[in-house]
């Protein structure tokens, strides 16, 4: 367990509903994440990984347990979002179709504590766009529905480049794009990490991706973290039956899968 963690969770639970309809989306999880680490939270659908990410993002307040960012509770969401930002899964539903992309990228600066002038904001948006290989003129006056999925995903990354957060929570950032574009997006994220010394938390069902990028992997199942450790341990030498099953279920090219 890292000393001086950036995130520290102690018996954190997140429940929805009550009585018979009680859903324990996150159930008593404890972990620490060190500054600058890359963590992947891996699990099937409904395992609670996205909810956990939303707790880390401060969008949800945990039902019980202690969740600290730099040793403090998250009391002020706006302060939290100055440091901690997110890329969501579906780039198409992330933008408001009634405003231009550029206007929405500029909107994001509202969250920063340091107030910038209009010129500075424009400059930073331009630089962020160039960082993800988009010529600013190409999206000038464009609305979300005029771009392709891969382009939209890069717009979400440009937003992160522009905001330069300390922590990035990436919820299935590559599930809507094909393999080549996925590798491309990972390149950008790694570039970001090097530039900003960011901590990145990937939330994904793709253990191949987790294995490739992370320092540590958490496997989640039914709200609990059932296994965690370095990739070589978790992905190649899994101990938990959940992890073993998960890895077994993935169709890999060099591995036997179900036979016809």
């Amino acid at each position: 367990m890292p000393t001086n963690p950036i995130f520290s969770a102690k018996n954190v639970s997140m429940h929805f509903g009550h009585g018979k309809k009680l859903v324990k989306a996150v159930d008593d999880v404890t972990f620490d994440i060190a500054d600058g680490e890359i963590i992947s939270i891996v699990g099937g659908s409904g395992c609670g990984k996205s909810v956990l990410a939303k707790v880390m993002l401060g969008l949800y307040k945990q039902t019980s347990g202690e969740f600290k960012y730099h040793g403090n509770d998250i009391t002020n969401q706006r302060d939290h979002w100055n440091d901690v930002q997110s890329v969501f899964q579906d780039p198409f539903s992330c933008f408001n179709q009634f405003f231009t992309i550029r206007a929405q990228l500029k909107d994001a600066f509202g969250i920063l504590k340091t107030k910038l002038t209009k010129e500075e904001i424009d400059q930073r948006v331009d630089r962020a766009l160039l960082a993800v290989n988009v010529t600013p003129a190409d999206i000038e006056g464009k609305y979300p529905f005029e771009l392709s999925g891969g382009q939209m995903q890069r717009m979400l990354l440009a937003r992160i480049f522009a905001l330069r957060p300390k922590v990035l929570l990436a919820d299935e950032p590559t599930s809507m794009v094909d393999a080549c574009v996925r590798a491309n997006i990972l390149d950008y994220l790694m570039k970001l990490k090097q530039e900003l010394g960011m901590t990145i938390v990937f939330v994904t069902h793709d253990i191949g991706l987790a294995y490739y990028v992370s320092d540590r992997i958490f496997i989640m199942h039914e709200g609990k973290i059932v296994e965690s450790g370095v990739p070589d341990e978790v992905a190649l030498n899994p101990k938990s039956p959940v992890t073993i099953q998960l890895i077994d279920d993935i169709p890999e090219i060099h591995k036997e899968w179900i036979k016809r």
Binding site: A179, C180, R182, N184, D206, Y211, L236, I250, E252, I253
Partner: peptide, 25 residues
């Protein structure tokens, strides 16, 4: 070739490989 080269899988040695990333659309 690019598609196959961009595959990521949890198999030994895959961490060291550099997946093929293609720019553009």
């Amino acid at each position: 070739k690019a598609l196959m080269g961009a595959m990521l899988s949890a198999e030994p040695g895959q961490r060291e490989k550099k997946p093929v990333a293609i720019e553009g659309a």
